[in-house]
Amino acid sequence: MKNLVVLSGKGGTGKTTVTAALARFAAGERRLVMVDADVDAANLGLLLAPREREATDFVGAEAAVIDAEACTACGLCAEACRFDAIAAADGTYRVDPLACEGCRACKFVCPEEAVAMEPQLSGRRYLSDTRLGPLFHAHLLPGQENSGKLVTALRRDAEAWAERERPDVMLTDGPPGIGCPVIAAASGADLALLVTEPTPAAVHDFRRILGTLEHFGIPALACVNKADLNAERREEIRVECEARGVALLGDIPYDEAAMDAVRAGRPVTDGDAPRLAAALSAIWDALRPHLDA
């Protein structure tokens, strides 16, 4: 099985649109499993009409709770907390569950044993069926820390499934950024496909995600969305790819039909967006040998 993750650094460059189109081409030729690893903003399912098969609660971290009856307001907990999560309130101390990182430092220092740790329900993970193949996806409850842990749990679900079912390709729609959830989504991937745009912000962040992938030794490929917006920056991307040995698989034109496809809730390859469909089909053709290698 080849494990391909779609990333970008900057958000909103078209990762999900590209993932859905590639899924559509891949599913015509191979056994495919998909993972939506952008659990903060899980959008791949909005294009694939998933039918839920299994759902599992995700209990990510714990948060501290102080028993006001037992608390003597000595303040040792607040002193030990490095996350500004504990403050004095009404003659006792209170934990802000949004700031608590579940480290238990307060519990260890409390002389009255007034601190308990409570598991936090931080989201749900799903296995759903789509017409292109199974989709592993998740919903993060807003305000829960550590989406990276949920991404890791989702990846483990998908890998356990793949161990049994032996698909040819695992296609993961990754989160934006370069930090914890991105590292969780990319770890163990055979290849990353980076979606960038010819804009200063996207090119800047393209270099940051490339550097991150180099750090972890994950080979990268690239494609350029809205490639015709700025010729100079498109050239800058080409030069960067050449210098770093990154294969540039192709360009996708600026086309407002991309938004229409999202509105219709389908991959751009299914609707009235012939230019986008042709561009993505060419990118799939250029990607195929990397999956076969």
Binding site: G12, D40, L98, A99, L140, E145, S147, G177
Partner: peptide, 14 residues
């Protein structure tokens, strides 16, 4: 703020 709805966003919005 960064995109998303997890810890880095909370830290920014606090």
């Amino acid at each position: 703020a960064p995109p998303g709805a997890a810890c880095p966003v909370i830290e920014t919005l606090r």
